[in-house]
Design a protein around this nucleic acid. Structure first.
Lengths: 205, 205
DNA sequence: TGTTTAATGCTAACCGTTAGTGTTACGGTC
DNA sequence: GACCGTAACACTAACGGTTAGCATTAAACA
């Protein structure tokens, strides 16, 4: 797993990495809009078509490091301890993800994304795809007998928590604040778990 | 208000309408991707630059009718009866909006949006802007002493409800199911309203 | 060795979008 | 009614992301 089997795949991975590194360097140096794909290709010494054979779009170059986001979220659901409830596991993972993207070194990249409408749009769309994966993972858990709609809803809420907390003044506190809300929503959606009417009574109008 | 004041503005509105109508007709006839801006401009007998002076992008041509979405949502908050709680008002509005976009005549347009990644991305981004407006409206209500984070969170949840319900097998039922969850989240976020510790107890770990 | 295949390169183009520059017609003013 | 400022629109040309088509190289494999 650490060493790719063949030389061909190693070279391919190296090319991909070189393109991604070159792109991010140029983007941070000159600004995302000021750097064209042709610039990236020239600086990485590859053809424009090669860039697009590795990355589906210019925006994808920026979010290459965000690739495992989806996997970490689903893993937090499917790989949690057998007796651990869903919400604490998700909350812990979101905490870690928020901490990761609000860390010192990530600031320039994050500012660049904030300032580019194209990058914001791309990320939003990407997060919704992640939410769908998360919803599938939640729905597949035999211990969580939710409706499909409830699973998709909670998954969206979790993604919302990530997006909103990242922009909050105190991201860590925001995660907790939002997750208190999500947990209440989750309790309402799972009347058969252990709630003895408490959650339902809280929402009866 | 019903009759524009000058001939100039009337002509401008007519041009805009002609462009929008022509575009939607061509999109539905030949498919969104198969119709170029140059086609729309030619068919509407205007210059390409005129199209872009009325619409910011090709996608915006499709969502022209969706313009009042944002206004209806904020109006549901700021214009509700003085003693009406927030959630029933929002739920009623989302019901109406979902019903509107799942109506018979809207089916081809909706299918076109579903099938085009560019249109989906545009809409998602647009809805997030709507969520921000809604959050501002909620935060401005003196009867709702929420934190900024709570207002933004609830606003996102409401937008999520719209997006998810629209895709559900039974949209109307989905709205109710999701709003039960949102109301629970809202109760947790507003400990000072009338909840006497019930909601808080439901989420204490 | 020879054959197959995947990665990359090159060229040219498509399409959304915009800048620059006129041209026209409306609206208010004398 | 003539006059001028301005806003809508047209035309040209270009920029930049993206892709198709085809050639080339080098790895994998028999």
């Amino acid at each position: 797993m650490t060493v790719p089997p063949g030389r061909r795949e190693r070279k391919k991975a190296a090319t991909r990495q070189k393109i991604a590194d070159t792109a991010m360097r140029l983007f941070l140096e000159r600004g995302y809009d000021a750097v064209g794909i042709r610039d990236v290709a020239a600086e990485a010494d590859v053809a424009v078509t090669t860039v697009f054979s590795h990355f589906a779009s210019k925006e994808a170059l920026v979010f290459e490091q965000d690739e495992d986001f989806e996997h970490r979220l689903t893993q937090a659901v499917t790989g949690r301890a057998p007796d651990e409830p869903l919400m604490p596991a998700l909350r812990r993972e979101i905490h870690a993800l928020v901490r990761h993207c609000t860390a010192e070194g990530a600031a320039p990249t994050w500012r660049m994304i904030e300032e580019s409408p194209a990058l914001r749009e791309y990320e939003e769309s990407m997060r919704l795809r992640h939410a769908e994966s998360l919803a599938t993972a939640i729905a597949a858990d035999p211990d969580l007998p939710q409706t499909t709609t409830a699973c998709r809803t909670i998954a969206r809420f979790v993604i919302d928590a990530y997006s909103l907390a990242r922009e909050a003044a105190d991201p860590e506190a925001a995660v907790d604040e939002i997750f208190r809300m999500i947990e209440a929503a989750w309790e309402v959606a799972s009347p058969s778990r252990r709630a003895r009417g408490t959650a339902r009574a809280a929402t009866s109008r």
